[in-house]
């Protein structure tokens, strides 16, 4: 076996061992007791994540692209500073404020999770696009590409790894913050975590927390795979340019 394959196999075995240990730690009886809840709340959790991530991707990629256009390059840094300040606001505070505007439930949660996921996407899209070699853009123009063509065929493919880095961070933050939406009356895996804390049932709390962590890992792995997969569509020579 070659070293990379060996490492992958070892990594896989380690992963299985960790999951097995976690199940032992939580206790199979707890899992059996909360099986229906676990499935239901995982679904609800995924629903929150999906809605807020789709919104964050659309707005975040859009804003990042807009900010990287030459016509706004002067004010772009200032906009990014505003985004940075917005990012220091704790998710719990955003949830609380959302509750005041949208009432209890899913809408508030999606809004807050959208905001939490927005900044990493905007930042990395902007930085990724701004970091594309000027010579490349020059060459694209030289070939007679229009700005949109250049963006689509040259700039975005080159900035892709950086952008996806931001998306992955956003995804993990999003999945990890979603349990908090229990506190504003939306369904998520937080419905296992917080009652577990309040009612002094540590195994219930752990079940929710571990499920959240595993969900984050799996989705992050999926995003990593997607990054690699989509990067392969580029011609090897094109990737070599960077």
């Amino acid at each position: 076996m070659t070293p990379p394959t060996l490492r992958r196999v070892l990594g896989g075995l380690l992963g299985i061992a960790v999951v097995a240990l976690l199940i032992l730690w939580i206790g199979p009886s707890t899992i059996a007791r909360f099986r229906a809840d676990l499935l239901y709340y995982t679904g609800q959790h995924l629903l929150l994540v999906a809605c807020s991530m789709v919104a964050a991707l659309i707005t975040g990629l859009g804003a990042g692209i807009a900010l990287s256009r030459p016509s706004v390059s002067k004010s772009a840094e200032r906009f990014m500073q505003i985004f940075n300040v917005a990012n220091t606001v704790p998710p719990m505070a955003v949830l609380a404020i959302a509750l005041a505007f949208f009432g209890i439930g899913g809408t508030s949660a999606v809004f807050a999770l959208w905001l939490a996921a927005l900044l990493p996407i905007v930042r990395n899209t902007y930085q990724g696009l701004a970091g594309v070699d000027g010579a490349l853009k020059e060459a694209a123009r030289g070939l007679g590409m229009r700005p949109l063509q250049s963006l689509w065929q040259v700039e975005l493919p080159n900035a892709w790894p950086v952008i996806m880095g931001g998306v992955r961070i956003a995804l993990v933050i999003n999945v990890g913050s979603a349990p908090l939406s229990f506190l504003i009356g939306a369904n998520s895996l937080g419905n296992l975590i917080f009652p577990g804390i309040y009612l002094n049932d540590p195994s219930q709390m752990l079940l929710g927390a571990v499920a959240t962590a595993l969900l984050a890992l799996v989705l992050d792995g999926l995003a990593a795979w997607l990054t690699l997969r989509l990067s392969r569509h580029q011609a090897p020579s094109e990737r070599a340019v960077v």
Binding site: I104, G105, G185
Partner: peptide, 20 residues
């Protein structure tokens, strides 16, 4: 299942007040 929602006790009153 989707009609049942458990939450913080304080939110129950808010949900009822807002007729949610």
């Amino acid at each position: 299942r989707s009609e049942l929602r458990s939450m913080d006790p304080g939110l129950v009153y808010l949900a009822l007040r807002n007729q949610q």
